[in-house]
């Protein structure tokens, strides 16, 4: 079953001489429950692609369909609600809210939805993420690996259909990186979520079921990572 589909997705930055075609006519689809990794050199357009899929940016042309709904046809308010319910983001720089503690950061998307967090699920999540002892700590009191685990918790809190991760291990050492990947994998398997992850690391790419390569804005599928 198709969960995400892009049609002729293009993005151009700037005009005339400074014009950069970051993405050229990308068309592909991803099924529910799949783990897709995106690889490619710096500046190839990976992040642009990910941002477009998460509606963080507007395409120059083309469409993105999530659950058969054209996300760029939605109004800003609708989109915000849609995003917090269906898409979880994980950034390389964590981007946690510095004033909120671990628990608050994780439940933030739920709180924004005015939902009462499912205590059991959140506790389970915190437990899996190994943050039980750090529940009331602030981001500044955590290590990089811990911070990224909080970010993962935040992305998973609403049990979104799709998780978009932009080099989630980019700032982490190999042990922490492996933990993070394992955690994401675990979640995807348990809740039948779709994970799309940008990575530089060939090793981590191989965890994925499908690998896309982006080069000069052109997306090509390399085939299954995990044979």
């Amino acid at each position: 079953m198709e969960i995400l589909k892009t049609e002729n997705l293009s993005k151009t930055y700037g005009k005339a001489e400074t014009k950069v075609e970051a993405l050229k006519n990308a068309s592909f689809s991803v099924s529910k429950g799949e783990f897709v990794s995106i690889v490619g050199p710096s500046g190839s357009g990976k992040s642009t692609l990910l941002h477009l899929m998460g509606a963080l940016d507007h395409p120059t042309s083309g469409r993105v369909l999530i659950d058969d709904r054209d996300i760029f046809k939605m109004k800003e308010e609708q989109l915000a609600v849609f995003r917090r319910r269906n898409i979880g983001f994980i950034f390389q720089a964590y981007n946690l809210v510095p004033e909120l503690n671990v628990e608050e950061n994780i439940t933030l998307p739920l709180l924004l939805d005015y939902k009462k967090p499912d205590k059991q699920y959140i506790d389970e999540l915190i437990h899996i993420l190994g943050l039980k002892e750090r529940k009331h700590h602030l981001p500044s009191q955590l290590s990089g690996g811990q911070q990224q685990r909080v970010a993962i918790g935040r992305a998973l809190a609403t049990k979104p259909a799709i998780i978009l991760a932009d080099e989630p291990t980019g700032n982490l050492d190999s042990k922490n990186s492996r933990d993070v990947i394992e955690l994401m994998k675990l979640s995807v398997d348990r809740y039948r979520q779709t994970l799309i992850m940008i990575t530089h690391n060939e090793n981590y790419a191989s965890y994925a079921e499908r690998v896309f390569q982006v080069e000069d804005g052109v997306v090509t599928e390399l085939g299954g990572g995990r044979k």
Binding site: V81, I87, V97
Partner: peptide
């Protein structure tokens, strides 16, 4: 930037 992060996490314009 902070506000950008909040929007990425799913904060609506009104919020």
């Amino acid at each position: 930037r902070y506000l950008g992060v909040m929007r990425a996490v799913g904060m609506s314009g009104t919020q």
